[in-house]
Design a binder for these strands. Structure first.
Lengths: 132, 132
DNA sequence: TATTGTTATACTCTATAACTATA
DNA sequence: TATAGTTATAGAGTATAACAATA
């Protein structure tokens, strides 16, 4: 428990620093990281970032003002706005990922077998089994 | 890397919820958790919470107003104020810890051997070797 | 001179509540 | 009626810069 807290603190600290080096807050960096997988509705973004939907407006506002994301109307539901990374946003998201050096180096220091083992153990601790 | 981010989210979310159930923010809860190990100077607290020293004033102010911590002058250096948990603060810190049920249950689900293995792997990834 | 804690300031994140436009 | 996004608001966290007291 203690060690988990320390490790996750290191990880979060490194992510915050990486985001800051691109002049982004941790929340903004996290939003870009999420959008790296593909566009998402404002509501979806709120759920993934585990914050109230009203907060997303401001976060996306600031990212959009810097040209890192854009809002696109949904074709199927006119209430929905999808947020997508711009080319500049993709570059920044990639840059943040690349700057997670300590964590990445630590992972690279493990053998494939050890990495797989860590993966399994972390999943068992943190990813709750989906009941029927 | 991806999984680490998920684990961090789960752990941090659970901690935030546990702190909120005691009407505390995550930062306040973290401060109590740190002080559980013993009193610390304002400056030390800032370093552990990885934030600027100026922020600690407000965080400790709010905790002190609720009677969870107290400021004590250092006997050896009159510039220093040590922050210590009150009895009430200890109770709240214990309550937060007890409410980290999902994480604790996940850890309890591992065998002693698996837990030891996880410990070793996490240390290798996150705790950098101290060079000479 | 350097360090500790504080204050003042500005920005961001956060939840709540109320609003609009759609469904 | 219910949902998606927005706005307004208030409280909290955050870094920066400047300050008084002490080392």
């Amino acid at each position: 428990m203690e060690l988990l807290s320390v490790c996750l603190g290191v990880y979060y600290g490194e992510f915050t620093t990486a985001a800051a080096s691109e002049n982004l807050t941790a929340s903004q960096g996290k939003a870009l990281t999420v959008l790296r997988r593909g566009p998402a509705a404002m509501r979806t973004l709120a759920r993934v970032l585990t914050c109230d939907a009203s907060n997303i407006t401001g976060i996306v506002d600031r990212l959009e003002k810097r040209g890192l994301v854009r809002r696109e109307p949904s074709t199927s539901d006119r209430r929905i706005k999808n947020v997508a990374l711009t080319a500049a946003g993709e570059n920044v998201a990639d840059a943040i990922r690349a700057k997670m050096r300590t964590t990445q180096a630590g992972l690279d220091g493990l053998s494939d077998e050890e990495r797989a083992s860590l993966h399994v153990l972390l999943e068992r601790v943190f990813v709750p089994p989906t009941g029927p």
